[in-house]
Amino acid sequence: MSRRTALQAGVSAVAGSWLGTAPSLAQASKAFPTRAIKLVVAFPAGGPTDLTMRQLAENASKVLGQPVIVENRPGASGSLPAAQLQSTQADGYTLAQLPMSVMRLPFTTGLKWNPVEDLSYILNVTGYAFCMVASTQSGLKSWQDVVAWAKAHPGKLTIGNTGTYTSPHVTSAIIAQQLGLEVVHVPYKGSAELMRATMSGEVMVAADTSAVIPYVDQGRMVALNVWTEKRLPTLPKTPTLIELGLPTTQYSPFGLVAPKGLPKDVQARLHDAFKQAMEMESYQAMLQRFEMLPIYMDSARYKQFAQESTVKEKAALAKLGPQA
């Protein structure tokens, strides 16, 4: 069984905008695209999200007949690309990657726009499973070791994540709350930075995506738990949170959005082009490299999923309270 097939089997559970003038957008959409498209990514260059999105952009360029150029805007819990769209013309020439963390921001910040209603949803492209890992140099060999150490040293356990109010941050905070642990949550700007910090001993534990599995395969990290409903075949010896007595699961699809008011024909053109790009072997291979899954949702289903996610995240944050 291939690594990708195995991972798929293990993750089965799976405001105001610039509208422009209607006539000019209608005219522009007829020949769309006639120039390069910018795709703004919410994470730093060189990490798994960036690399997979660059491959997707390269593939989409071939379908669209125009370059799709990636621009990185990390920080602010992954919200900067979508926030940029709030003052961008809705003509299809600027797109953004939309992390799940953006769905939490209406409940954690003074966000002035609505992530569900103030964006045009194009399609969902992929997603991560999550896990916790520690450096093999840390001396921690299991999740039980981590819990025992944290209880013996209240407030000393450091758990790194990929940004404040990202899924790794919020879920690890929920886990600590469930266990009654005092921990320090340390945000980083992406997986690459977090892995460097974990291997250097800057943090003891990292909460990250399944993209860290290659570090485990190389013997540089030890996997402590996974956040899927069932064990990952790629980490068959690593227990789920449910097995560890914690009623928690988490996974994080993400996709592409455009400014509110995107013409329907442009939305359809972008959807079809990026769907073709998803199906290309080069993109599938890049996902496999980082233990990521192709998770397709069309425009309507993706927007519905976003709406459902805001309800779920609001409930989770309410339960967590100020500890996040």
Rank of each mutant, 00 (worst) to 15 (best):
V311N: 11
A9R: 08
A60K: 10
N225C: 11
A152W: 03
G92W: 02
L140G: 09
L232H: 05
R3C: 10
V40D: 01
V183Y: 10
A300W: 04
G163M: 05
V170H: 08
A273D: 02
L241T: 09
W227K: 09
M199D: 00
P259M: 08
Y188A: 04
A324Q: 08
Q304D: 11
S138W: 10
E117T: 14
A306V: 06
K314P: 03
P168L: 07
S299P: 09
M204A: 12
L181C: 13
A31E: 13
T49E: 09
H153M: 00
A206N: 04
Q8F: 11
F107S: 15
V266D: 04
Y283S: 01
V70P: 08
L95Q: 05
S24T: 07
P106M: 04
G78C: 09
Q97L: 14
Q178D: 05
K275H: 09
K314C: 09
F130M: 13
Q86M: 12
G155W: 02
A28W: 02
L287D: 06
P48N: 15
A316W: 15
L119Q: 05
V212P: 08
V170N: 10
T136W: 01
F254C: 13
Y121T: 03
L262W: 00
K30F: 11
K156Q: 03
K237A: 13
T166Y: 08
G190L: 08
G163Y: 00
P247N: 07
S17H: 04
Q178C: 07
P233S: 00
L64M: 12
Q307K: 15
A258H: 03
I242S: 10
T164Y: 07
Y302F: 02
A258R: 02
G190F: 08
Q84N: 14
F274S: 02
S135D: 06
T52C: 04
T21M: 14
K141H: 04
H271R: 12
D145F: 00
S87H: 14
P81I: 08
R35E: 03
K275W: 09
R73H: 14
I37V: 11
E58N: 14
V102A: 05
L317W: 04
T164A: 15
A176T: 02
G201W: 02
F43P: 01
E71P: 10
